[in-house]
Design a protein around this nucleic acid. Structure first.
Length: 876
RNA sequence: GGGCGCAUAGCUCAGCGGUAGAGCGCUUCCCUUACAAGGAAGAUGUCACAGGUUCGAUCCCUGUUGCGCCCACCA
């Protein structure tokens, strides 16, 4: 409470209206959120008759806490579901978290490392136990952050990807895919991380341009020699061939012969393969089938043997001088040895080429021959692509669809097995005689001597891909699944289109008989700092949303994020932005406070149009337009625009003009005041409803006070198409113009804004007589006394304002202003006249455009006449 | 090597065929009885460059330059 609090103590409903003059988020947010949850308003009812509206949350990783990017997406999803709930939908926003296999395991391993231990010291079971404890701790933090943000999620349906139910879903679909021959086990070259000690999929590899060294090595002797180039010289220890193009004249004589592999005593064949580009390098390629995906394919085509030359940690295992060396040490050692034998014919360094790194730990990937489980992607990805192509699923913004197609149309088979402990264990058992049995969730695994379960776990994205239906109870035919699948909108960052979105599409279409998991994919940008830089912990510019929520309130953070949300575009955000939003919340607070003090009400029907002033009709007309605009922006996922619309309507029109104009009315009292009280109540009622999905806390607090009703969460969304009155809109535009022009004159004359000035106000011919009191009040114009002497007279439209400035007219300032305005008007006249004199323009321009130009010319002519007259008066 | 996007006020971004917009910042004045987290007034842009289409281009087309981003098994 502050001392400038106003009476009366109670408003129209006996509700206290002595709101403090500042909005203090901390005093209302926690209390309101708890109430919303207690009342169960976020809990969806699968048995409801209402149409469903479903969004599943992109489950955050349990590895940490929510960052601004999460807060951003959560705000948008919350706004969508809150609005739909208000519109009468059975709205479900389903929360949960992802176990994030490799990421979480790495975190816990780091923790162990600080204790000087490794996971192997604990053993698998104890280690997994430890990860669960980690999940409890960090998961709890995330849930707390979501509550602070005001996320209206259905906590009764909270899910975790390692829940029993979700694990059953994983097993079920694994078995189904296996039986459909869409999951298979095969030995292939995979991306191996020598630090994480697991295979990873193609998208988990980041390619970075790095400086390397390209060395050219002579294989074989004399006439029978050729030169190959490589950046990974150590792999030559595993070479089993040299390949050349079959048409390449230079090497035709060598095809089918053997060359001696340096540093070893092996002879390797020269094979002909179409894959080799004769124009690149020397046109001859060394072939290492066990350590390079291309070479593996060549090896397959030519039935070449594969020699694995490194262990899991990328240490050379080939007996000899290089044994025991790390791959990078081996690289220079091999090059050194070759050089001393005179076999290096050329070296190029630095040689810039793309090197794959583990996206989790940045270690350089080592391609490695390995037996893994795979998803046969082609049929699934084709279906996923078709669903978007034929319009069953829309991508917002549409430009992003290109990226989606680029991926689903070119996807390679997906390596899904991981040599980790944290995750869904592969439901396959191996028998003593090489039997392989895939075990479904309701089945008993085979028992008996020699049977063992596969020790690997599944890629974490395997279970996330099931999220839209596994969370609703699939494979059981639950009421939730029937009611809430398919979901409506999938809202997420464009950075996980491949990781997650495409996988959900593939699995959703497959598991749910061709029904895509959502009809709209709304892609957001990434949150960046105020200078457009990526936020990252290592860069020191990342922000904990809690800090800003503490300082400015959740609504301020939410409004800032939503206001920056242009579809698919990155969102820069700085603390200044949040302050501005905080100021907006405070402004809304104080406007409502003003309304309460003046007895604004929402009771009873709106007064008939005849009883309302033009000012009342104007604001209601604008309100109706804003409702329609807001709906349109929501339907198009244009959050930035809808925030902007509401911000400017509220501040520029309602607060700066309607409220200011109504002060005179309230002061005068009587029926007009009675009518305006109802209108002001209506405007705020609707405005608060419109703002609620974005800024739920402050609007809830104000609306319940204003209306005496229970909650905005379950209130109705305003319906568009109400009151429109263009005549009133024009009239008020005139009033605003009049006031603004006189204010400008006052400011030019150096008058203080509050200074009262004796004046004569002649509104004759403007039709604005009804606004005289309001205009006088806004302009601080005192009625002219008997000794009134006009020291300045200015015409505005059809009105004339004469002011007594006690003789102290600054004619120089006035002359400057008028001259400048005159120049502008003359330029305008010249432009429009030129246009209207252009025959081609007259012939081709559409009528509304011509009409506009004519109007502009008329306005310019009028301005010139007026300004010229004023200047003359000034001179004379 | 492919694909995509962006260049608009000091900063971050909207606009996208008919007089250049917002927020923040900036200047001047004001604690006017909702709000100084506020009010009033104001300044600021060859809309990257060069061509083209058009009666008219910041907006469409082509090219140039400069930045991003995504994808990629060319040794």
């Amino acid at each position: 409470m502050t001392e400038n609090t106003q009476q009366p103590a109670t408003g129209p409903h006996g509700v206290p209206t002595d709101l403090p003059s500042r909005y203090t988020p901390a005093e209302v947010e926690g209390k309101l959120y708890e109430r919303w949850v207690e009342r169960g308003w976020f809990e969806a009812d699968a048995k409801s008759d209402k149409p469903p509206y479903t969004i599943v949350i992109p489950p955050p990783n349990v590895t940490g806490s929510l960052h601004l990017g999460h807060a951003f997406q959560h705000t948008l999803m919350d706004a969508l579901t809150r609005r739909k709930r208000m519109r009468g939908y059975e709205a479900l926003w389903l929360p949960g978290m992802d176990h994030a296999g490799i990421a979480t395991q790495n975190k816990v391993e780091q923790q162990l490392a600080e204790e000087g231990k490794s996971r192997h010291d604990l053993g698998r079971e104890e280690f997994v136990e430890r990860v669960w404890r980690w999940k409890e701790e960090y998961g709890g933090k995330i849930l707390g952050q979501m509550r602070r943000l005001g996320d209206g999620v259905d906590w009764s349906r909270e899910r975790f990807t390692m829940d029993e139910g979700l694990s059953r879903a994983v097993q079920t679909i694994f078995k189904r895919l296996y039986e459909d021959d869409l999951i298979y086990r095969a030995e292939r070259i995979i991306n191996w991380c020598p630090r994480c000690l697991t295979a990873i999929s193609d998208i988990e590899v980041d390619h970075e341009e790095r400086d390397g060294e390209l060395v050219s090595i002579r294989y074989g002797e004399g006439e029978n020699s050729l030169v190959v180039a490589t950046t990974r010289a150590e792999t030559m220890l595993g070479d089993t061939a040299v390949a050349v193009h079959p048409e390449d004249e230079r090497y035709r004589h060598l095809i089918g012969t053997e060359v001696r592999l340096p540093l070893t005593d092996r002879g390797i064949p020269v094979v002909a393969d179409e894959h080799v580009d004769p124009g690149f390098g020397t046109g001859a390629v060394k072939v290492t089938p066990a350590h390079d995906p291309n070479d593996f394919e060549i090896g397959r085509r030519h039935d070449l043997p594969s020699y694995t030359i490194m262990d899991e940690r990328a240490v050379i295992t080939v007996p000899g001088p290089f044994e025991g060396l790390d791959r990078l040490e081996a690289r220079s050692a091999v090059v050194g040895a070759l050089r001393s034998q005179g076999r290096i014919v050329a070296e190029k360094r630095p040689y810039v080429h793309a090197v794959g790194h583990c996206s989790r730990c940045a270690t350089i990937i080592e391609p490695r021959l390995s037996l893994q489980w795979w998803v046969r992607v082609e049929p699934l990805a084709r279906a996923a692509g078709d669903a978007v192509r034929d319009g069953r699923v829309a991508i917002h913004p549409p430009e992003m669809a290109g990226r989606y197609f680029q991926w689903v149309d070119n996807m390679h088979d997906w390596c899904i097995s991981r040599q980790l402990w944290w995750g869904h264990r592969i439901p396959v058992w191996y028998g003593p005689n090489g039997e392989v049995v895939c075990v479904g969730p309701e089945e008993e695994p085979p028992t008996g001597e020699g049977w063992t379960q596969d020790t690997d776990v599944l890629d974490t994205w395997f279970s996330s891909g099931l999220w839209p239906f596994s969370t609703l109870g699939w494979p059981e035919e639950t009421a939730d699944l029937a009611k809430f699948y398919p979901t409506d909108v999938l809202l997420t960052g464009h950075d996980i289109i491949f990781f997650w979105v495409a996988r959900m599409m593939m699995f959703g279409l497959y598991a749910m008989d061709g029904t895509p998991p959502f009809h709209t994919i709304a892609l957001t940008g990434l949150v960046r700092d105020e200078r457009g830089k990526k936020m990252s912990k290592s860069f020191g510019n990342s922000v904990d949303p809690l800090d800003w929520m503490d300082a400015y309130g959740s609504d301020a953070v939410r409004f800032t994020l939503a206001r920056g949300a242009n579809p698919g575009v990155d969102v820069p955000i700085g603390e200044d932005w949040v302050q501005a939003s905080r100021n907006f919340a405070n402004k809304v607070w104080n406007a409502t406070r003003f309304a309460l003090i003046n007895g604004a009400t929402v009771e009873g029907p709106l007064p008939a149009a005849e009883r309302m002033s033009a000012t009342d009709r104007w604001i209601l007309s604008r309100l109706a337009a804003v409702v329609a605009e807001t709906d349109a922006h929501y339907d198009d996922y244009q959050f930035a625009k809808l925030c902007d619309t509401l911000f400017h309507f509220a501040w520029d029109e309602v607060f700066d003009w309607y409220v200011e104009l109504s002060k005179t009315t309230f002061q005068a009292g009587g029926e007009a005041a009675e009518v305006s009280r109802r209108v002001l109540g209506e405007v705020l009622d609707v405005l608060l409803r419109l703002l609620h999905p974005i800024v739920p806390f402050v609007t809830e607090e104000l609306w319940t006070t204003l209306t005496g009703r229970e909650s905005l969460v379950v209130a109705d969304w305003p319906t568009a198409g109400g009151f429109r009155d263009e005549e009133a809109e024009r009239e008020l535009a005139e009033v605003r113009r009049l006031v603004t022009e006189v204010r400008r004159f006052r400011a030019d004359q150096g008058l203080q804004p509050g200074q009262r000035v004796p004046s004569r106000l002649d509104l004759g011919g403007t039709g604005l007589d009804a606004h005289e009191e309001a205009v006088r009040s806004l302009l601080r114009l005192q009625p002219a006394g008997p000794d009134f002497i006009a020291s300045a007279t200015l015409p505005v439209g059809g009105a004339e304002v004469a002011l007594d400035l006690s003789g102290a007219v600054d004619t120089e300032a006035e002359r400057k202003r008028l001259t400048k305005d005159l120049a502008v008007a003359e330029k305008e006249l010249a432009q429009t006249t030129a246009k209207l004199g252009n025959e081609k323009f007259l012939a081709k321009a559409p009528e509304p455009v011509k009409e506009k130009i004519r109007a502009r010319r008329e306005a310019a002519e009028a301005d010139i006449a007026r300004l010229t007259a004023q200047l003359e008066r000034l001179a004379g």
